[in-house]
């Protein structure tokens, strides 16, 4: 009880002078009687509550102790002298405060000093406080400055992030490449096919779908799946010519444009080589992945022969015919039976 004894050494305290000093040093302090009634409230607290709500009221009637929670009587509160208290006003806006209580000597009651702590931002708003309401040494103003400066900086950063994110999406949107395989993506494929049709070129479109790929992904994981896709891309590059277009248009779905080639024999050969290449076991870490491919082939003969949608539809139907036949094979759209009306 070092502090208390220090206060207790001299003659009776002259409260008016001391309180005037304390009001400047601790503008949020209260003096309590031994019974816990408030007999003095410093200026900032006076500004925060009507005087009648403070003076003469019991401390525990005005404040609800949050921590330590067990405190309900003045003697319990006095026993917690010099340790940190957490409390809130019992009336709205229920501002939370922290504080510390010091007992005065010779049964003269106690002093409680209060502070907003982290609730200072709401506190100044709720009570319209100014710099003058805080002690000159209080860091509250610096804290408010920092909160405001940091939120302004954070705001600017957030805006920058949003713009960068937008730019990234736009760049991805415009990209023509599938990042995993380095092949063309769907958007590029559509553009190139449309252009090719317009140029009236004769070409074949192969729609290729991997067989058993889902099993690889499910049992060996996405890393294995990604590796398989990259290996498949290599096979397709090896089995096609430079001017042909290869695009990954879905998870395990590809489109290959074989330029200037409509001979069924040649195309069947290419398809067979593709399937053969893809069926070669693909080592991954200590494991081996086995897949195959089904292919549908549609041919575009001359300008105005087919539009893009129809051509893709043809290749798609041929592909599903291959799947129906038991996979790992290629089918020409031309060989399908005419659809029933």
């Amino acid at each position: 009880m070092k502090v208390d004894r220090a206060l207790g050494c001299a003659a009776p305290i002259e409260w008016s002078a001391l309180e005037a000093a304390l009001d400047i040093l601790c503008p949020m302090h209260l003096r309590l009687t031994e019974t816990g009634h408030i007999i003095h409230a410093a200026p900032t607290l006076q500004k925060m509550c009507a005087e009648s709500d403070l003076i003469g009221k019991r401390f525990l009637e005005v404040f609800l102790l949050d921590r330590p929670r067990a405190i309900t009587t003045m003697s319990e509160l006095m026993a917690r002298a010099r340790s940190k208290l957490h409390m809130e006003f019992r009336v709205a806006p229920h501002t939370s405060l922290k504080g510390v209580l010091v007992r005065l000597p010779a049964g003269q009651g106690a002093l409680v000093n209060l502070s907003f702590g982290i609730s200072v931002v709401e506190g100044v708003l709720d009570y319209r406080l100014t710099s003058a309401d805080f002690a000159a040494t209080d860091l509250a103003i610096e804290m408010l400055y920092l909160v405001e400066a940091k939120s302004a900086a954070m705001d600017a950063s957030r805006k920058l992030n949003q713009r960068l994110q937008g730019a990234k999406l736009a760049a991805e949107e415009q990209a023509a490449t599938d990042t995993l395989t380095g092949l063309k993506n769907r958007r590029a494929a559509d553009r190139i096919l449309a252009q090719k049709i317009e140029e009236s070129g004769a070409f074949a479109l192969m729609h290729l779908d991997l067989d058993y790929f889902k099993a690889v992904n499910d049992t060996k994981g996405h890393a294995a799946g990604d590796h398989v896709l990259q290996e498949v891309a290599k096979v397709m590059r090896a089995e096609t010519r430079k001017g042909d277009m290869i695009a990954r248009v879905g998870g395990d779905e590809f489109m290959i444009l074989i330029d200037d080639e409509v001979s069924k024999v040649k195309l069947a050969e290419i398809a067979a080589r593709l399937i053969q290449g893809i069926e070669k076991p693909i080592p991954f870490e200590q494991d081996v992945c086995n897949i195959s491919a089904s292919i549908g082939i549609a041919v575009h003969l001359e300008c105005g022969h087919l539009d893009l949608d129809t051509l893709v539809q043809h290749s798609d139907r041929a592909l599903y015919a291959s799947k129906d036949k038991g996979r790992a094979c290629a089918t020409f759209f031309d060989d399908l039976e005419a659809p029933k009306p």
Binding site: V121, G123, L125, S131, I141
Partner: peptide
Amino acid sequence: SFELGARV
């Protein structure tokens, strides 16, 4: 006027 807690 300058209010400590004004929102800008």
